[in-house]
Amino acid sequence: MTLAYVIHLLGAVLWVGGMAFGLLALRPALAGLAGPQRLAVLEAAYRRFFLVVWHAMPAMLITGYILVFWWFGGFAGAGWHVHVMHLTGLIMAAIFVLLFLGPWRRMRGALAAGDTASAGAAAERLRWMITANLVLGLVTVAVAGWGRFGG
Score class of each variant (00 low, 15 high):
W54S: 11
F149G: 02
V41I: 09
A40T: 07
G73W: 06
F75P: 02
F96A: 11
A56N: 06
G102P: 00
G109E: 15
V143Q: 12
Y46Q: 07
L26W: 07
H55P: 01
R106G: 00
A56D: 06
V143E: 14
L98V: 12
W15E: 06
A25I: 05
A44K: 10
Y5A: 03
A4V: 00
G11L: 02
R127W: 02
G17F: 11
G102Y: 13
A144W: 09
A56W: 14
A94F: 02
F49V: 09
G11M: 12
G151Y: 14
G77D: 13
M60C: 00
G74R: 07
H81R: 13
M1Q: 05
G79F: 13
A76G: 03
G17L: 08
W15Y: 01
P28E: 08
G64V: 08
L87N: 05
A112S: 02
N133H: 09
L3V: 12
T116Y: 14
A122H: 02
P58M: 04
R48S: 00
W80Q: 15
R125S: 11
W70A: 06
A12C: 07
L51R: 15
L42T: 05
V141M: 06
M60W: 10
L90W: 03
M92P: 00
F50D: 10
M19C: 07
G109D: 12
E124F: 08
V6Y: 04
G18S: 06
A12W: 13
A44E: 08
L33R: 13
A45V: 03
V135M: 03
R38I: 08
G120M: 11
L10Q: 11
I95P: 00
W146Q: 07
L99C: 05
N133D: 06
G64P: 06
A4M: 04
L42C: 01
L26P: 01
M129S: 09
L3E: 12
G151E: 15
L90R: 06
I62A: 15
A112D: 10
T131V: 03
G120S: 12
V82H: 03
W146M: 08
G64N: 12
H81Y: 13
G32I: 14
H8N: 03
P28A: 13
R48T: 08
M107Q: 13
G17N: 14
A117R: 15
G147K: 08
A44H: 10
R127A: 04
G151K: 14
M19Q: 00
G147H: 12
G137Y: 11
F100T: 14
L98W: 14
G77N: 14
V97L: 10
A112G: 02
G150Y: 07
G102C: 03
L30E: 11
I130M: 13
G109Q: 11
L61A: 12
A12G: 13
V143C: 04
G120A: 08
P103S: 13
A93T: 08
I95T: 11
M129A: 05
W71C: 05
V82L: 05
T88E: 13
F100D: 14
G150L: 01
Q37W: 14
P36M: 09
A34H: 11
A113F: 02
G77Y: 11
I7K: 11
V82E: 01
F21S: 03
V52Y: 14
F75W: 11
